[in-house]
Amino acid sequence: MEFISREPRFHINSNLYIAPGKAKEITTFPVIFERFPVDILLAYSRELVTLDTTAKDCLVATYYGGDMIIPMLRTETKTIPSEKKQEQNWLGTDGVAIFKEGKLVDTISAYEMRGAMWILGKMRDAEITVNAPTDGKPLDFMINQSHSKIKPIIEGNQITMHIHCKADASLISSQSNIPLQDPAQIKKLEDSLEELVKIRIRKAIESSQKVGADVFQFGSYLDWYVPSVWKEVAPRWRKVYRENVKIAPHVEITIKRLGTTKNPIRFHPAESSSGG
């Protein structure tokens, strides 16, 4: 961050990743479908496969004490059929790293990372699965776009962060016989999707509160909405965030597209015709 803040030629909208080993090793990974390794990383951020943390995000976080989250990469060896089944080094995404006061203190899983993306309003073109309330069989939905808004509410000495998330969803596959023509059943599916997202949001925040790292910059919202309260708690904010801040997620997901097929596609064996 010191180098980035002082070097005017460094683009502050560049994406940052945490990689195992040395950074220069990433440049030596074989490229199969892209021209350069950087194209892979650009695609990860552009398609929101993982968090798209930029240098600017980290600089802003540094101003508020250096608590931030940065996406992680992982490497492994895979057998790729298109490469004559030869083993190749493979570069993929993992969870995210939690930084506290500029130091890496913990990591969270890809599952919890999804909750972080909901909080930050960066969930797009992501698949989410819920079970039907009728027969318990899975339905897969695609989240088309999400938006989030964070607002702190002060009640006495209690600080509550209200996180409002809105999104549209499209049904992409179903193994259930749930009647999709019934608005009441659609509402139940929306409720199930919303509850699942709330769980992910709470998981992500619990991980950050456990280590006392305000990686979602809730302090900046407090500073913006109620600066008098922020001035009072700022010197001990990490302790306040860890022990006294409550989270209230509010999720609204609307299923807008079900497709033309109202019932799941089933393959049935052809009936044998009797001779005669």
Rank of each mutant, 00 (worst) to 15 (best):
L180P: 04
A132R: 00
N157T: 14
I205Y: 06
I150M: 15
I205V: 12
A132D: 00
T62I: 15
Y44M: 14
K210M: 12
I70D: 03
C165R: 07
I4Q: 02
I32H: 13
L91W: 02
S207W: 01
A132E: 02
I108G: 05
A167M: 13
T50H: 02
K103W: 02
D214V: 02
R35V: 06
G121S: 11
K84R: 14
A213S: 04
P227V: 05
K100F: 00
L73M: 04
V130D: 00
H250S: 14
R46E: 14
C58V: 07
N15L: 10
G21F: 09
S173G: 13
P183Q: 05
I153S: 11
L41Q: 09
I247E: 08
P71V: 10
Q145R: 15
R46V: 05
E155T: 07
V96G: 08
A19E: 03
R46H: 09
C165K: 08
V215R: 01
S82K: 09
Y225Q: 11
A97F: 01
V197G: 14
I98M: 01
A126W: 10
E155F: 05
A132C: 08
I201Y: 09
V38R: 14
V215C: 13
V49E: 11
L222S: 07
V31F: 07
F99D: 13
V197N: 05
Y63V: 06
P249M: 04
D94Q: 04
A110C: 08
H164K: 14
I153R: 09
I108N: 03
S176L: 03
I119S: 01
E271S: 07
A132H: 00
G115K: 12
I108A: 06
K231N: 13
R236C: 11
L59V: 01
D191F: 15
M1Y: 03
I154S: 08
P8F: 03
D168K: 11
M142Y: 14
A116W: 05
S174D: 01
E112L: 11
R242Y: 08
D223Q: 10
A23V: 12
Q145V: 05
S146T: 14
T54D: 10
F36Y: 15
K198H: 07
D125R: 09
T129M: 03
L91M: 11
K85I: 15
I253D: 07
S176Q: 01
K198G: 02
P133A: 06
I150W: 15
P20M: 03
L139A: 11
Y64M: 14
V197A: 04
L41S: 11
